[in-house]
């Protein structure tokens, strides 16, 4: 057993014995104290739930009501009209919700899959090899990670704008003014994150299995594909999911790069619906926001344990 597994095991046993010991020896709170604690906790819960309930309530307003009339859990004449409207055509532009979601999906899937695939290979090199230039390269990645995405906005805009592509099937297009260009811009920030997060996780995988495989004559490629990748699956999934969410909701690059109506994404439409001169009824805006938030929210909500622990490992061990 390596030192690393030993420490995780002690933590695990500590966690298991800790609460049970205390529960048996310590008193339960009195009923009065319980009631006070419950009241405070419920108050906190109400503040958490209020905006969510509010936006759901407003999404049920009928379409002829531009702004909500007051606070109500279920508004008068509640209807799902707004959902129907935003699914067929959310903004003034001739593009449906599915069209917008399709573009966001292309960006999100493309960027997250590519970043994780390329990232895990680099993470493996950093986690398992000592080589010349390792520290410098890791510092370069950390330096880029520190930057907000806005930092590469200007040069990427200018550079991608100079690339005219002519592909079979798609035809000629400007790389900047295309989903492909936005995808590249996103990967420029997502890839360093993927490398760093995955390296943190690979560092925690004990080396015993690999060493055993080497004894049996396995090569680095074989141990990488047959041992490391399957063991790293949870981290790969978490990293891909986080990348997916950032691509699904990406705003800065898409808003600045894309001019064509058929390339619009969900985030761009959301902003357009709320712009200074937009007259979109709040019910439609709310319905749109809910439909937009639901896919990542559901995954996040049910996989939160894996996501937060995956992040914690990546962050702390990094």
């Amino acid at each position: 057993m390596t030192a690393q597994t030993a420490t995780t095991l002690t933590v695990a046993t500590r966690r298991r014995t800790g609460p049970s010991l205390t529960r048996s020896r310590r008193d339960q709170p009195s009923l009065l104290r319980q009631a006070v604690l419950q009241a405070v906790t419920v108050l906190v819960l109400l503040t958490v739930l209020f905006p969510i309930v509010w936006v759901i309530a407003i999404s049920l307003d009928p379409l002829n009501r531009s702004r909500p009339e007051g606070l109500s859990l279920i508004p008068s004449n509640a209807t799902l009209e707004a959902y129907g409207q935003v699914i067929s055509q959310p903004t003034n532009n001739p593009i449906s919700f599915l069209g917008l979601a399709g573009n966001s999906l292309k960006i999100a899937l493309g960027t997250s899959i590519i970043s994780v695939l390329i990232g895990v290979s680099a993470a493996y090199a950093f986690a398992r090899f000592k080589f010349r230039g390792r520290e410098v390269l890791m510092l370069a990645i950390l330096g880029v990670l520190m930057l907000p995405p806005v930092a590469t906005l200007t040069p990427l805009f200018v550079m991608l704008n100079q690339v005219q592509l002519d592909l079979p099937l798609v035809g000629a297009f400007n790389l900047r003014n295309s989903l492909l260009g936005v995808g590249l811009a996103i990967i420029s920030g997502l890839l360093p994150f993927a490398i760093w997060n995955l390296k943190g996780y690979l560092d925690t995988i004990p080396r015993d299995l690999e060493e055993a495989a080497w004894v049996d004559g396995a090569s680095y490629n074989q141990t990488f594909i047959k041992i490391i990748l399957p063991l790293a699956l949870p981290a790969l999934a978490v990293t891909a999911f986080l990348g997916f969410v950032s691509g699904w909701t990406e705003f800065y690059f898409s808003w600045m790069f894309l001019n064509k109506v058929e390339d619009q994404t969900l985030a761009m439409a959301l902003y357009a619906m709320q712009g200074q001169f937009a007259s979109t009824p709040w019910s439609q805006f709310s319905a749109f926001a809910i439909l937009f938030a639901i896919p990542p929210a559901i995954v996040y909500f049910f996989a939160q344990r894996y996501i937060t622990s995956g992040l914690a490992i990546g962050g702390v061990k990094g």
Partner: peptide
């Protein structure tokens, strides 16, 4: 719950 909702929304 607040964490699971994308910040743009």
């Amino acid at each position: 719950l607040p964490v699971v909702i994308p910040p743009i929304i």
